[in-house]
Structures are given as structure tokens and as C-alpha cells.
Write a protein that binds this DNA or RNA. Structure first.
Length: 935
DNA sequence: GCAAGGTC
């Protein structure tokens, strides 16, 4: 059997499809891994790397005294399987194989991934021959050529990849641990360091510094407006920027009409059709459609998986010869008929090409025809972009006609340029870069025109812009940082570590502090040069002019030197970072004592803005709970009124929630409650705010004397005020109980959120569970609740509310549960229903029931029914049971009707008894007769 | 709990 191992499942599937000679390959699942059988062959897809480098045992604990971060440098490195099922399957299949072909991607990581597979094969089968198929596109032509001429695994190339892995692990892990421990950060808040992420972060930090240090310089621009017939146009002074206002004004005062056309230059310009997409080019184009780098990759991955486009991770901008461009065009006719036919009719001699050729994959191109209905809106936009880009690479260049005039206005020279699209070329099918005609009137040399107006504008030089995601990815590529598959993820990593935020990207204080510390003490890791050096070494390893171990060890000794310095300065580094990050949580000054106000989090989920002078000053402002997002300072916006930084809540996968000024937010979220106090009016609120009291809770916590002093109240007024606040708090407590209850009882639906239901109840004046328990069902139905839900709400409320009442009366919980289980959920039941029945149904003995009945009656001011001893009760039961034709289940009904024994049976009215018990009148009469006799 | 690189 011939085992073929590809880099990924989909590649295995397609390779099998191209190689099989008889019918379709048979798809099988082995332990949830797909394999493709055909002829005497089996194709299996890996999932990229199926093993991972890690340190040998004993280095798990970050805070170990002996295994410090530094010791990671020289710790042993092992390889551990990450895809256990695949590894097991390779072993199983290898045992039966007489030939194994490694058919992973044709690049360095592909070679390493192939070597990892090879090692696994060897563990299971020492002898089987293993060869290597190399192809740069999964097309019929390339695949059959690759399998017809197999080669050997390039172990030197794989070793180059291993060197990269080991160096990355050693540097990344040791520095990450060191700096996290120094800054006392653990768990989700660790500070990571790496060969790619740290230089990328440094780029963003450097740009921010450039921006903040930028000093704008004013300059002046001078232009004139003239017209030919009724067509107006503008011309700029040929001096361009004037650094001095006087100069510009001088030129302005020299400018006199008429405007003489001194020179006319006509020309043309070629506008080249764009090169094929590689990953970066695609991300840049997709960002113009409004997609972030990661969502662009997600969508492309999806299109690829569904067979609409080729592999989206590629460095190649040159179509390989093996690519069937005509075939693709024919396929595209199905969904882009007009455009495709135009391209076929006007096709350029050779497709455009970019600067990079590589062996891994072809440039991104469409592979199948999709219709708009096949895809969601975003995917369609991306698919169309890729199709149109492909069409554009086969289309002729566009051509522009250019026009340039030179004018003289009283001795001052002005110029104006225009352009007009002369030949659309590729722009017929690719309209993503806006190209505007700039129209100028047709003038001839020597012509004199009126001077309609002059414009002198003052401008300022601008700082460089912050990096957009796509610009950063382009820059990373230029510097050799990361790969086509990882660049966009690096940005995500920097965001999730809270090193950078927003789009365009802006570093946080943590990001800046970490970068500065590293720049000071471990410069190497913050520079793209490290990647370049490693690339150089890898090149040597590949050529076997250097060994992997030599390269890794050299890197280790450099890192050891860095740690000499780091360990000496551990405390300083830690403090620097901690100071900077504390600063990031300060939102302004305390209005009471002037100390700093800081965002803080309690051990639970609560977060708030509190005074750093606590406990001497207890000023604090509530913020929404952590479940809505972690509160951080907004560096840009500051409240005009309170002079505090805005606060926003950030949560993974969600847009930040702007809370605004924390004090405004505090006031806003407490105003409704305050207005529930009868004596509160706008004047009272003004007075409260003046004294920094913002909530009912704060009033209720203040001593009466202090309220009196601050609010200029009499002691009595202050006392009343505080009592009122306590009342409102109690009311709010009940409301929150209702809210909690609604959340628990009613599932949320579209247009009927929990808070809508709760607020609806409050507006119906149903503000506690007691009121809800006796609410009108129809009234509840106005809150978009259906019949069943309204009933459920009332019933469940009754359960909870009445349970509380029973408890309050002093009935033990165990008995309450028994009553409730038997359906006696109302205290009234205990008054209205005969104790015998209560006892019979609930299983509580009659004496105890009597005790409870007495309690309830007393609370309600009702005379309790006469007591009955257990003995008498039992005797009555025996009496009833002795009646001829009396059955056990009749007891239930009799008790309910208040018939307990012969005596009560005789006294009962026959008709009524029959009605209640549903026992026939005749039988009742017989029972009565017999009872009368035996009484 | 750490990197970067594959892939899902």
C-alpha cells in the first residue's frame, strides 16, 4: 500500500482525485480523520504541524526558585504531538505501507511538517521507503509531474525550520516569563514577548512617538480661479508651499488679471493593470471594502473551503505556467459573462505579474463560479473582488490623456493639470481604485482669460498617520516579520494582550512601557533584524554550511548575555511597567480631596472608580459589572464638566462600550432612583451634587448630622430624608428581586428583553413579587407575554411570595414544602380547608396542622376551628372505613367536605355532600343511614 | 499561563 501524506485534509482529497485511475477515491473516516482510498493507495491530510516544541518536564511552574525564566534558555527541548488522532493514524497506516510519499506544501514550513510526519512514520515502520513530492499548485499537471518524479525530503531545509522553532520558543518563553514576573502579572494579564510581536509592537509605539513629538509647521498655498466661457477651473501657484506668509502675500499682490495661457502640454500616461493577489495584496484590497485583516482571512478561508477560490495563504504574485487561465475564464463565464467575454476578446499577451515568485501556492485566484445567491453578502463582495482582480490581471493596461497648462497672471506663474481616461483597459472589469477625470477647459497658448478669484489658504504640516491594520501588514511584510499566514494574527495578539487598541492602531500605556523596557534591556527582540539574522542562519543551515545546533546555541548565548542585564535590573523594569500601567487607570482628580481617582476592581465582578486616598476619602463611582467588559480609561475624551477621562468597557469579540464620564454615568444611573424620593426635586438634586452626593445609597449611608449640615436641613428634616432614602432602597431591593425573578422565569424573545418585561411590570405598578402574585393576567399580556407565560409568571411569583409569608408567620420550611407539594400554596388554604384534609394530603400529622392553622388564623384575626386530637381523628377514620362500600379514595373527598367521622357524616346535608364528593346521592344516603345506626 | 508556525 502506498501512503500519501499531505499538509491538510483538503489537499489530500484533491491529490487523491487527481491520482486515482479508477472512479472516485473512497472516503473513509478513521477515528474522525478522513482518508481517501483509491487503487492501492491511501491519502491522508495532516493539520499543518501535528507536533509542537516545548520544554522538557520540570519547567511548568513560572515561579519556581530553581527553574527561573533564565534556565529556560538551556532547558532541553522536546516535541509533543498536538494532533494525537492524526499521529496515531499515521502510525497505523505506516505499518501496512510499502511506500510513503510526503506531499506537504513546497516551502520551508512544509518541509518541516513533512519531516515531522516522516519521524512518526519511522517510529512505526523502520524500513518503509519514504519519498517527497513537490508541487506548487494542486493541478492535474503539477500533481502528476510531482508523483512521477519524486525526490527526497530535504532534511537540511527542515532543520532550518527546527532552528527557527527552537529559537522562537527559547526567546519568547524566557522573556515572556521574565517580564511578566517582574511586573507582577499573571493569568490573563501576562506580558508576552516574541521575535515577531515585539518588533511589530515597537513599530506602532515608534509611530505614536513620532505623532506626539510632531510639531506642525504652518505653510501657505496660493491659487487662482479663472474661467473659460462658463467653465471654472483652479490653478496653483508654481512656487507650491510658501513657508512664509509674507512671501505668499507678495505673490498674491503681484497676481493680476488677465490670466495668460503661457504653455499647454498634452501627453498620455499608462495605468498598469494590477498584479495577481498574494495574501498581503488581498488583505489591503479587502480593507478598502471595509474588512479587517482577520475577517478578510476568515472569509477567504471559507471561500477556499467551498471551492470558489484558490488557497488564500500565498506569497506568490506570479501565475505558474501550469495554471489553466483559459479554463478559469470559461468557468467564470457562468457568473460574470459580460466581463469575462470582454476580457477574452481583449486579453493581454501575458498576464501581469508582481515582484514575488514562490514555490508554495499560486496567487489567489477564483477556482469556481459562484452566484450571488450562493454566498452571504460579505463573502460575495470578497469573491467578486478576487474574480475581478483575476480578470484585471489578464486585461490590457488603461491609458490616460494628460493635460498641463502654465499660466501667467501679472508675472506670477500658476499651473493646472487635468486628466481624462482615454482607454479604460482593465478598469472595465476592476473598479476598486477610484480614478477620477479631472476636467480642464480646452485652451490654447496665448489665450487670455479673466482672473475670477484668488485663494490664499493657511495650512499646517501633518504628523504621519497611525498604522491601519493593512498598512501594518504591508510594513511587516517589507521587514520580513511573520508570514502570510500569521501576520494578521499578530495584530490580534497585540490587541488581546492589551498592548494596542483601536483602528488605526494605537499603543496603550502597557504597550509603550513594555516596548521601552525591552528597548532598554533587550533591544534585539524589538528589532526586525533578529528575524533577518535568523533567516540568514536558516539559509546556511539549508545549505548545510552551518548546523542547527550551532545556530541555536549561538542564539542561546546571546540571550544569556541579555539576561545578565535583565536580572540585574529586574526591580527597576518591573516598577517602570507597573507605574505606567497604574497611570493608565487614573481618570482624574477626586472632587472632594483632590487625590487621584482610579479605576479599580473588587475580587468579585464589581468595578468602580475610587479615590486613591481611601479610606480617608471614600468618594467612589459605580461602573457596570465586569461581565459587560473590563473598564479602561479612554485617553482621548475628557468630560468638560467634571474634567475626568471617559471610561470604556472592553470585551473580547465585542465593540468597546463607551460609558463616557464616570461621574456623569454615576449621576445618570442614579437619577431615577433619586426621583423616587418624594422630597427630591431639582433644587435638592443641585444641592446634593454640590456636596458630591449622587445616589440614594449614599444618603442612606450618611449620618443624619452630616446630611443636615450639607443640605442645610434641620435634624428632623435630615432624619426624614434619610428614612425616605431607606424606603426607596427597600423598594429598589424588591424591584431587583422582580427583575431577577423575571430573568429566571421567562425566556427572552426578540422585542421582549428581560428589562422590557421588568420595566413594563413597574409601569403597571407591579413592583414586588407580592403584587405580581395577585396581578391580573390580562394586564400582563400587554407586555408581549402569551397566556401561558403570564400564568406561569403569576403562579411562580405566588409560590415564592407565599413561601415567604408562611416563613414569616413562623411555619417551618419542612412543613411549607410539604404543603406546597400537596398544592396548598396559599395561607388562606389553611383557614378555608379542613385541617383533616390538609393533614391527609400533606402527610403532616393533624396536631401539627392544627398548630399551623392556629398561627395563620391568629395572624389573620380569624377564630381558629376547634382542635381535634390525633386519637379522635384516627377513630373517625376507622369509622368511615368500616362503612359498607366505602373505599379508601373516598376519604380524600370526605375530608375535603369536612366529613371526618360518623357524627359529621350524619350532620352533613346529603345533596351538598354528593355534589362536593361526586359520590352518588344514593350511596351517601346509605352511608348516612349506616352511620346513624352505629352512632 | 509563554513563541511562531502550520491549519479548522
Amino acid at each position: 500500500m502506498h501512503l500519501i501524506i499531505a499538509e491538510k485534509n483538503i489537499a489530500a482529497q484533491r491529490i487523491a482525485g487527481f491520482l486515482n485511475s479508477s472512479g472516485n477515491p473512497k472516503t473513509e473516516k478513521d477515528n474522525n480523520v478522513s482518508i481517501y482510498r483509491f487503487d492501492d493507495k491511501v491519502a491522508l491530510g495532516l493539520r499543518g504541524h501535528v507536533v509542537e516544541v516545548d520544554f522538557e518536564d520540570g519547567y511548568k511552574n513560572w515561579r519556581s526558585e530553581t527553574h527561573t525564566p533564565r534556565t529556560l534558555i538551556d532547558a532541553g527541548i522536546i516535541r509533543v504531538p498536538t494532533e494525537k488522532k492524526i499521529v496515531a493514524l499515521i502510525k497505523k497506516l505506516s505499518r501496512k505501507a510499502d511506500l510513503v510519499t510526503i506531499a506537504t506544501d513546497y516551502d520551508r514550513e512544509g518541509e518541516l511538517i513533512g519531516k515531522e510526519a516522516y519521524e512518526i512514520v519511522r517510529e512505526a515502520n523502520k524500513k518503509v521507503p519514504v519519498n517527497r513530492a513537490r508541487f506548487s499548485a494542486i493541478t492535474m499537471q503539477e500533481i502528476s509531474a510531482a508523483f512521477d518524479n519524486p525526490t527526497e525530503i530535504d532534511f537540511d531545509l527542515a532543520a532550518a525550520g527546527e532552528a527557527r522553532q527552537e529559537i522562537d520558543l527559547v526567546w519568547g518563553a524566557s522573556l515572556t516569563r521574565f517580564i511578566s514576573i517582574a511586573a507582577k502579572r499573571g493569568g490573563k494579564n501576562i506580558l508576552s514577548v516574541g521575535r515577531v510581536q515585539s518588533p511589530t509592537l515597537a513599530m506602532i509605539v515608534d509611530r505614536e512617538k513620532e505623532i506626539s513629538e510632531f510639531i506642525p509647521v504652518p505653510y501657505w498655498m496660493l491659487s487662482i480661479i479663472s474661467k473659460k466661457d462658463e467653465e471654472q477651473f483652479e490653478a496653483r501657484h508654481t512656487h507650491g508651499k510658501f513657508d512664509l506668509k509674507e512671501e505668499a502675500e507678495k505673490a498674491l499682490s503681484g497676481t493680476k488679471g488677465p490670466v495668460l495661457v503661457k504653455e499647454k502640454k498634452e501627453g498620455s500616461r499608462t495605468d498598469k493593470a494590477p498584479a495577481p493577489f498574494d495574501t498581503t495584496g488581498y488583505i489591503v484590497a479587502a480593507s478598502r471594502l471595509g474588512l479587517s485583516a482577520s475577517s478578510a482571512m476568515r472569509v477567504a478561508e471559507d471561500l477556499y473551503m467551498n471551492g470558489f477560490i484558490s488557497y488564500p495563504r500565498t506569497d506568490n504574485t506570479v501565475y505558474p505556467d501550469s495554471l489553466d487561465l483559459k479554463g478559469i475564464l470559461n468557468e467564470l463565464k457562468k457568473s460574470f459573462r459580460r466581463d469575462t467575454e470582454w476580457v477574452i476578446a481583449n486579453m493581454r499577451d501575458t498576464p501581469t505579474k508582481g515582484k514575488k515568485t514562490s514555490t508554495d501556492h499560486p496567487p489567489i485566484h477564483p477556482t469556481g463560479a459562484a452566484k450571488p445567491g450562493d454566498l452571504d453578502e460579505k463573502s460575495w463582495k470578497v469573491y467578486e473582488l478576487i474574480v475581478r482582480r483575476f480578470l484585471a490581471t489578464l486585461s490590457p493596461d488603461a491609458r490616460w490623456k494628460t493635460l498641463k497648462y502654465l499660466f501667467d497672471a501679472g508675472g506670477e506663474e500658476y499651473t493646472s493639470t487635468g486628466q481624462r481616461l482615454e482607454y479604460e483597459g482593465y478598469r472595465m472589469v476592476y473598479q476598486y481604485s477610484q480614478a477620477r477625470d479631472q476636467a480642464l477647459p480646452d485652451l490654447s497658448e496665448g489665450e487670455k482669460l479673466p482672473l475670477a478669484d484668488t485663494v490664499l489658504e493657511e495650512k499646517e504640516t501633518q504628523p504621519p498617520p497611525r498604522y491601519s491594520q493593512s498598512k501594518l501588514i504591508q510594513q511587516m511584510e517589507e521587514l520580513g516579520l511573520g508570514t502570510k499566514s500569521t501576520r494578521h494574527e499578530v495584530i490580534g495578539k497585540l490587541v488581546s494582550r492589551r498592548y494596542v487598541e483601536d483602528n488605526p492602531l494605537k499603543p496603550t500605556q502597557v504597550g509603550m512601557a513594555v516596548t521601552e523596557s525591552l528597548e532598554k534591556h533587550a533591544t534585539l527582540i524589538t528589532k526586525p533584524d533578529m528575524t533577518r539574522t535568523i533567516e540568514g542562519h536558516m539559509e546556511e543551515i539549508k545549505k548545510a554550511s552551518r548546523s542547527k545546533d550551532e545556530a541555536v546555541n549561538e542564539s542561546r548565548s546571546m540571550l544569556n548575555q541579555i539576561f545578565d542585564d535583565l536580572e540585574k535590573n529586574e526591580e527597576v523594569i518591573g516598577e517602570e511597567i507597573m507605574d505606567r500601567t497604574a497611570e493608565e487607570r487614573i481618570v482624574g482628580k477626586c472632587p472632594i480631596c483632590g487625590s487621584n481617582l482610579m479605576i479599580r476592581t473588587t475580587k468579585g465582578m464589581a468595578q468602580f472608580v475610587g479615590c486613591t486616598n481611601y479610606p480617608d476619602c471614600s468618594f467612589n463611582l459605580n461602573l457596570p459589572s465586569v461581565q459587560w467588559g473590563k473598564a479602561i480609561r479612554d485617553d482621548v475624551n475628557i468630560c468638560d464638566q467634571h474634567n475626568l477621562n471617559y471610561v470604556k468597557l472592553i470585551r473580547a469579540g465585542a465593540r468597546p462600550w463607551e460609558i463616557g464620564c464616570p461621574l456623569c454615568n454615576h449621576i445618570r444611573s442614579n437619577i431615577d432612583a433619586l426621583e423616587m424620593m418624594d422630597s427630591v426635586n431639582s433644587e435638592v438634586i443641585r444641592k446634593m451634587h454640590e456636596n458630591h452626593i449622587y445616589s440614594v445609597f449614599e444618603i442612606s449611608k450618611l449620618p443624619v448630622a452630616e446630611i443636615a449640615a450639607k443640605m442645610s436641613f434641620s435634624d428632623k428634616q435630615a432624619f426624614e430624608f434619610k428614612r425616605e432614602a431607606d424606603g426607596v432602597l427597600e423598594e429598589l431591593r424588591k424591584r431587583s428581586e422582580v427583575k431577577k425573578f423575571v430573568r429566571k422565569t421567562i425566556p427572552p424573545k426578540k422585542g421582549r428583553s428581560h428589562s422590557k418585561v421588568s420595566n413594563g411590570l413597574f409601569s403597571l405598578d407591579i413592583t414586588d413579587l407580592g403584587r405580581l402574585s395577585c396581578a391580573n393576567k390580562d394586564a400582563l399580556k400587554t407586555l408581549k407575554l402569551n397566556d401561558e407565560e403570564a400564568e406561569k409568571l403569576i403562579f411562580e411569583a405566588k409560590l415564592i411570595h407565599n413561601k415567604a409569608i408562611f416563613k414569616e408567620m413562623g411555619i417551618p420550611a419542612i412543613s411549607i414544602n410539604k404543603y406546597f407539594k400537596s398544592g396548598f400554596i396559599d395561607p388562606d388554604n389553611l383557614v378555608r380547608i379542613h385541617p383533616a384534609y390538609l393533614s391527609y394530603k400533606s402527610g403532616i400529622n393533624i396536631d401539627t396542622v392544627h398548630k399551623h392553622v392556629n398561627i395563620v388564623c391568629e395572624k389573620k384575626g380569624i377564630t381558629p376551628p376547634p382542635g381535634m386530637s390525633r386519637k379522635t381523628f384516627e377513630k373517625g377514620r376507622t369509622e368511615l372505613m368500616s362503612l359498607k362500600g366505602f373505599e379508601e379514595e373516598m376519604l380524600d373527598k370526605m375530608y375535603y367536605a369536612g366529613v371526618l367521622n360518623f357524627k359529621t357524616l350524619v350532620e352533613a346535608e346529603a345533596d351538598k355532600l354528593s355534589e362536593i364528593t361526586k359520590i352518588s346521592r344514593k350511596k351517601i344516603m346509605d352511608f348516612k343511614k349506616e352511620a346513624e345506626k352505629n352512632k
